[in-house]
Design a protein around this nucleic acid. Sequence first.
DNA 1: CTGAAAGCGCTTACAG
DNA 2: CTGAAAGCGCTTACAG
Lengths: 330, 330
Amino acid sequence: MAITMVDVARRAGTSTAVVSYVFNDGPRPVAAHTRQRVLAAADELGYRPNRMAAALRSGSSGLIGLVLPDTVNPYFATLGRHLETALDTAGKLTVLANAGYDAQRQAAVLDRLLASQVDGLIIVSADGAADPAIAAEQAGTPLVAVHHRPEGSTAPLVAADNDTAVTSAVAHLHDQHGHERVDFLAGLADDGPVSARLAAWRKSATGEVLRCAYSREAAAELTSQLASESRLPRALLAATDVQAFGVLAAAGGLGIHVPDDLALISCDGSAEAAFTVPSLAAAQQPFDEIARRAVNQLLGQPLPDAPARARLVPRRSCGCPQPPLITGTG
Amino acid sequence: MAITMVDVARRAGTSTAVVSYVFNDGPRPVAAHTRQRVLAAADELGYRPNRMAAALRSGSSGLIGLVLPDTVNPYFATLGRHLETALDTAGKLTVLANAGYDAQRQAAVLDRLLASQVDGLIIVSADGAADPAIAAEQAGTPLVAVHHRPEGSTAPLVAADNDTAVTSAVAHLHDQHGHERVDFLAGLADDGPVSARLAAWRKSATGEVLRCAYSREAAAELTSQLASESRLPRALLAATDVQAFGVLAAAGGLGIHVPDDLALISCDGSAEAAFTVPSLAAAQQPFDEIARRAVNQLLGQPLPDAPARARLVPRRSCGCPQPPLITGTG
DNA sequence: CTGAAAGCGCTTACAG
DNA sequence: CTGAAAGCGCTTACAG
């Protein structure tokens, strides 16, 4: 029913091979006038090549699977957005699936993605999930892990810059604002990226480890509780933006003054950090570079020499003056 | 190179037709013991059906294209997340593309999606873009617009509940907090959903129309400017969450007290509204229901009787007491 | 520079 | 209940 190559070939008075050569710019040359005829015929007929038929024959679908825990989380949303842009630039379409931090869902989703013949897989893996590299390898599909890979996974990992993020934040709180002690707000368990952040913090700071789930709710609740026990830190490094947002929300509601009572920096740095009240200082991850590296790695293209570094963006929450709001944060 | 049906059929001592019947549960019945043999063979071989080969033959790829302006925007992120979930439930995979509010990009992306044989298209169209329904119809692919369709488009639209959102917010500010006058923060131009919100506001409130782009930056800048001219509204209804976030950020920086100096409600209601400082009252859109309706509409399934309504969630910014932070907002 | 034909991995009438 | 075979729309050796 749809217009196919055969229709175009017939109308152009040529073969389907030539039509293919024209639409793919190769692999054989086509005479200029033949090309014109083909293009004209295709245009008149409203021909649209069927990428999936091509995929069946050529082995490349142009589809990349992107598995994220939850795209509503601003960190993953930002990462996902940059990844999608990088894939688009590479001529790939992004098949997005939310795995919801759930090992089973993640496995199911990987299966469906593989069945759909994706050319590659980019995944921020849930913790405790089966190694996604295994399913991918069995299917012969390249895979790269971003931000996090499960314990023991052999997947190539494009990590966030956890070290610089933590080190620069601790140094800033110490050097600029005189905090001798900087506590660290980690997750309930030590998964990959946060344990890297925690390790970096242990090396560079003195203080206590606080723990709560990676959500605004959990961090708000923890903050309220600490406040009620008068055990609030004077300076706190939050492992993630959502936790920092929760701390700020609770502080705002309780009349805790940030930064005077509690100085705060996050290790993610999504764009929203610039617009909290007070604005949230953050070691901003190089999302753009992470995305580009992941895509290059996946497609077997050369990586830029050195990974980009996280960049500390001081704002009101650490004790610095409020920067102008119109600067944005990309 | 990959394991195919032929391999499975051979090992099970049967035909590829039967293997297909087994994996698709039809359309012909298969004897129980034959099914066992096929399943065993497939398992031993590590067979994974090729969905795209099936698509070529059957005409259904299992892929749905989702075109959004920008998934970093919390409103579209939330919408996208619910849409992806609804599609997943329907057994469809989501091919996500950010069109970046750009007509050209949107057209290009639609083209690539159509070439990839998506079974359907869900789009929050950029304004001023070519009617996406035209390309879709030409390709014989069903399309539904969500939240917004360009002027003159014939695409079926699943809209947000703009009326209730505005009406309930205005009524709340008036009845509960005594505001006779409620200004409205619209976009720079009157596009679909916001013009619907604006129209509802005109019918239910008295006040001034303020305008700025749909971004935190723009709203923060506008707020600063109004403050410097002492022209700040006493009560404001923001068309979108991002604008409301910008207003709150500017107010926080300038020491403008929300809600005492300026009461604020937004018409979107993404989850982050619960965690701003002060928390943002919002007419919360029924994201879940919008997503379900869009997917049902797309797949030709019956729609629930009546669309769900937006629900006003009072919080600190309108003048109500701060609700507990641990309730969440789904 | 161009064409005839095989084949990618499935599904689906059709015949038995 | 099962099998042989055509065909979905492409790409790609191969031959000319």
